[in-house]
Design a protein around this nucleic acid. Structure first.
Length: 549
DNA sequence: CAGCGCTACCACACCCC
DNA sequence: GGTGTGGTAGCG
């Protein structure tokens, strides 16, 4: 939430400064588009956010690349183009020598590893052997945790070693399987390497490894998500929870840790580290491209001697295919694609808190004046205008999954529970659009304690009808909502772009679970909490941003 | 004119024994 | 000395 707010602020600041630098031209120059020309996209940006903004509004299947252009300080500029066009200019290896793929945050991606150790500090280390052992361990983990079958033949193995440094990139080419994003990849990698991390933490010098019970210390909450029916309905298909008991039955070596001591290496000052670099699973990570070198260094990523991955027959050139295989966020679309997730225990905790009442989901909206349903606002106002008291709507809150409108009422305090008005506590009117009923609750501690809800009364017919019609037009539809809150079930186009954002998977819980987990009493509390601030709420409608500008 | 996203590390505050 | 916080240098 905080992140999204910060990103938004940054975007606004940047747009403001760009307009200051380049004020809009006073002369309007109309232009005709030329549809007969092949669409060509090749745009450079100094700022990453600007590049991604462009991608968002681009019809073509474009991607962000980072280009190093100044020796020394790792300064980069950002190129937006298609894979096809990029390869056309890249393949000659005369230009574009120091390029990186930007792995977009929230984009489905492949499993990948950055491996390295200092050869001088580890004279006894056998790099190839370590790679083979690691792949074996990872495949075993994929099988045990996600039932995914793979072997070294599915691992594209790129080498960038020098005399001083052993350096590899591994990119897993899993068929019909991808991770939700690279943060989840990182969680998975950290999880399955935990035994090795423990070796470093516990075995300071004396070499006494700790004993642990389970092979893979924590189990992902949610695994495969099938896409098989996504084009026709909202069915996300299979998605189930693995628990420790199930794992025991798999005949894995649950008794003791696998020996991962081969992963422990020393850096140049003798400090122990992992062979696997765990620092490459961050948002918008730049990952060097096949056949690119770091600026100022002569060594490019090339296919490793011990690479076992091979291509299948195809029309496109082998090099182009290898290039495409090396791209982390180039996930081939398939209607049987399974998206793997792996949450940290921290995140799981957050999710529990989230569903136990705190803030609202990104899918909910709120406001202080009129809700998106003016007719219902009117109806609610008519309810709280009685006996000479003119009540008002202090605040409203809409919960998408439940289709529930929660109105905080001011001035009017009549409570059905006590048969009179509260002296100091306000009441709420809840409008359940799904069941077309309304009822009353209140903020009084006593009423709250007994979880009082008034009888449900049917909504007047004209309100139901109007809301139905409204839904088609101006209600927060896909178009008026932010990208992040768009209907997630249109992946065929977005997925092919390598960007796949789904607010539900961000919290890993579906509607049904949401409904079970949240009592509407808690929803009302959440509505109260929403008064705090906009960033608690997660998203600001784009219209608001425009107003600020 | 112009990179980005962290984490490891340090300084400091505060608390408790 | 243990624990939490806040700020930043520097790594990937």
């Amino acid at each position: 939430m905080k992140r999204k707010w910060e990103a938004k602020l940054k975007k606004i600041e940047e747009r403001a400064s760009s307009y200051e630098r380049k004020p809009l031209s006073l002369v309007y120059r109309p232009r005709l588009s030329k549809p007969e020309e092949p669409s060509s996209v090749w745009k450079l940006f100094h700022r990453q956010t600007e590049a991604f903004n462009f991608v968002k509004n681009c019809k073509e299947d474009v991607h962000v690349f980072a280009l190093e252009y100044k020796v020394g300080d790792g300064q980069r500029i950002y190129l937006v183009t298609t894979y096809v066009q990029f390869w056309f200019y890249y393949k000659s290896r005369k230009n574009l020598l120091h390029c990186y793929e930007v792995i977009p945050e929230n984009a489905v991606c492949k499993l990948y590893f950055d491996l390295e150790f200092n050869k001088l500090a580890n004279p006894e280390a056998d790099g190839k052997m370590m790679v083979a052992l690691l792949i074996e361990h990872v495949c075993k983990a994929l099988q045990e945790l996600y039932r995914v079958n793979c072997s070294a033949e599915d691992v594209f193995n790129l080498d960038s070693s020098t005399d001083e440094k052993f350096s590899r990139h591994l990119i897993f080419q899993l068929r019909d399987v991808a991770f939700k994003d690279n943060i989840h990849v990182g969680n998975f990698v950290k999880k399955i390497l935990q035994p090795a991390s423990h070796l470093i933490a516990s075995e300071s010098d004396d070499g006494i490894p700790e004993t642990r019970v389970s092979h893979f210390p924590e189990i992902p909450v949610k695994q495969g998500i099938s896409f098989s029916k996504m084009s026709t309905d909202n069915d996300r298909g299979e998605s189930w929870t693995l628990n420790a008991k199930k794992l025991e039955g798999l005949g894995s070596a649950k008794q003791s840790d696998p020996d991962l001591s081969f992963l422990v290496v020393k850096n140049s000052i003798g400090k122990k580290h992992l062979f696997v670099d765990l620092g490459v699973y961050t948002r918008n990570r730049n990952f060097r491209l096949y056949k690119s070198s770091k600026i100022g260094k002569p060594v490019a990523l090339e296919i490793a001697e011990d690479n076992k991955f091979s291509l299948t027959q195809s029309d496109v050139s082998e090099e182009n295919q290898y290039f495409l295989s090396s791209l982390i966020s180039n996930v081939r679309f398939s209607d049987t694609l399974r998206i793997l997730t792996c949450d940290t225990s921290q995140n799981k905790q957050k999710q529990v808190e989230y569903f136990n009442s705190t803030s609202t989901s990104v899918e909910n909206i709120e406001g202080f004046q009129g809700s998106p349903y003016p007719e219902i606002d009117e109806f609610v106002l008519s309810l709280v205008n009685k006996n000479g008291i003119k009540g008002g709507i202090r605040h409203w809150n809409y919960f998408f999954p439940e289709e529930l409108l929660v109105y905080d009422i001011c001035k009017y305090r009549w409570c059905e529970n006590i048969g009179r008005a509260h002296k100091s506590n306000n009441i709420m009117i809840l409008v359940d659009l799904k069941n077309e009923v309304w009822y009353q609750k209140c903020h009084d501690p006593v009423c709250k304690a007994e979880n009082f809800k008034s009888n449900r009364f049917p909504l007047p017919a004209e309100v139901c009808l109007l809301s139905l019609l409204k839904e088609e037009e101006e209600l927060p539809t896909d178009e008026t909502m932010n990208n992040e809150t768009k209907n997630p079930y249109k992946p065929s186009s977005t997925l092919s772009k390598g960007i796949f954002s789904d607010p539900e998977w961000d919290n890993g819980i579906d509607d049904a679970y949401f409904l079970e987990a949240i009592e509407d009493a808690e929803l009302a509390d959440a509505a109260e909490n929403n008064l705090l601030s906009y960033n608690e709420m997660g998203e600001i409608p784009d219209e608001l941003i425009t107003e600020i500008l």
